[in-house]
Simulated assay, not measured.
Amino acid sequence: MSPISSLPLTRPGQGRGLLDVLDRRFLLKLIVRKELRVRYRGSVLGMAWTYVKPAVQFAVYFFAMGVIMAQRESVPNFAVYLFSGIVVMNFFGEGFLNATRSILWNAPLINKIYLPRELFPVASLWVSAVHFFPQFLVLLAAALVSGWRPTLIELAAGALGFVIVAMLSLGLGLLFGAVNVYFRDAENLVELIVMVATWASPVLYPWILVYDNLPRWLWLVYMSNPLTAAVQLFHYAFWFGSTGRPELLPNGRPPMSPDMWGWAGLALAVSLALVVVGQLVFRRLEGRFAQEL
């Protein structure tokens, strides 16, 4: 008996999910480069759009919330507060939305050869991280100019917030990316989720407004949102230190919500659970991707 004939039979087209992505890191890099080249093909500004879009967002929100709604009077260094939240939401929105579209965008490649389909949502998340980095540099510069001198625990909070958003985007991207192959309405639903998410987290306003105006049960639902915890972790990491770390803000309320670390732990657990659920649904549905596409 030849060595080949003694090998166990395996079902074609079945892999180990996200573990296969780790084994094909070089292929993942190629897909990321391809997406970046396609994204900016024929563009005059190119990667400069990663600065232009957040700058316009910041200007609009700062004028509306900071000036008209006078949030800058009750929140010191409101510019840093606002931009640290915008950075988080841009990373989540781009990663989630592009991961949802990634299977459809790569339909010609999926129909020609077999490769782990999870490569495409992961590559989309990687591209969003590439776009996150320039915005993050601007945030660092603004925080330093404002007097930010971070502690180790504040830096750890920023890293934890990034991990939560990355896992949340990947889990939801796997889930909706697989569903979007069968029901194209999923993409429109994701756009609505991303739009609502900005207002369902303390990006444009302080958390205390929600605490004061919502019933306690709805407050608990609000805090159970992983993005709420991630935004607060970024505020703690890059804004709180630039304010001199006061116990109370000018409005007499604490700068950070109670049990912030407990909510952060819950957010991490929820994000990890969504990665598991997203992977299970993705593997369940990927068998007919080529036929549906």
Rank of each mutant, 00 (worst) to 15 (best):
R284V: 01
V88C: 13
N180S: 14
L27C: 01
N180C: 12
A64S: 07
P254K: 07
A159F: 15
L220K: 05
V165G: 14
L248E: 05
L109I: 04
S242D: 10
L27M: 13
G17A: 12
A267P: 05
R283S: 10
I110C: 11
F62Y: 15
A273R: 06
A264R: 05
R245I: 02
Y211R: 10
V275K: 05
V165I: 15
K34N: 10
H235V: 03
P206N: 03
V32E: 04
Y40K: 00
V163T: 11
L220Y: 11
F92S: 07
V60D: 12
R24N: 09
V196M: 12
Q279S: 12
P246I: 00
F183Y: 15
M195Y: 13
G173K: 15
L249Y: 03
P226G: 01
I4F: 15
V231S: 11
V130G: 01
L115S: 03
L192Q: 12
R149I: 04
Q291S: 04
P226Q: 04
L82K: 03
A141K: 02
F78W: 04
D20E: 08
E286K: 02
L139A: 00
E191D: 14
F26M: 09
V196L: 14
V190T: 06
F289E: 08
W49T: 00
Y182W: 13
